[in-house]
Amino acid sequence: MHLFLLIGLVAFSAVAILCRELLKSAISLAVASIFLALLLFEMGAVYAGVFELSVVAGLITVLFITAIALTRGDGDVAEGRAQRWVFPLFFAGLAVVDVLVMRKLLGRIPAIQGGESGSFSQVLWNQRTFDLVGQVGVISAGVLAVLALFRRDNGHGKGESHE
C-alpha cells in the first residue's frame, strides 16, 4: 500500500512539472498532494494528513486555479528545448541514486530513539513554541507582502526610471 501511494505521489509530482498547461499542472499537483495526505494517514500522522489534504490539496489548489483563470493568455512563452529534457534526465539520475545508494545507506544507519514525544498538540504548543512564533512571522510576512504588492497608490515611478 505504501509503495503504491509513494509511486502515485512521485508520478503525479513529475507530471505537474512536465505538463505544458498550467491548469493540468495544478490539478496534477493537487492529486500528488492527495497521495501524500493518504500516505501520511497510513503512517499515523493524522494531523499532518489533515493539513496536507485541506490546505495544500484544497486551499492552495483553489488559489492556483483562480489565479490561472484570472491570467490572460497573451501567447505562449518561448521556452528553450533544454527545458524539455533537463528535468526528466535529472529525475532519472536521482531515481538511480536513490535506488542504488540512499536506500542501502539509510538502511545501515542505526537511528537513535527519542526526539519529541507526546500528542501533536503537546509537541506543537509545549515543545515547538518557538517555531510557532516563526510560523506567525511567516504568515505575517505573506499577508504584508500581499498588502504591499497589491497596494493602490503608485506614486513612486521607480520601475520606469530604471535604465
Binding site: 512571522g137 505575517s140 510576512a141 504584508l144 507582502a145 498588502l147 504591499a148 497596494r151 497608490d153 503608485n154 506614486g155 513612486h156 515611478g157 521607480k158
Partner: peptide, 15 residues
C-alpha cells in the same frame, strides 16, 4: 517617492 511606507517598514521589521 515609493509610497506605502507603513507596509514597507512592516515588511522590513518582519525580515
Amino acid at each position: 517617492h515609493y509610497g506605502a511606507k507603513a507596509n514597507y517598514y512592516a515588511l522590513l521589521l518582519v525580515m
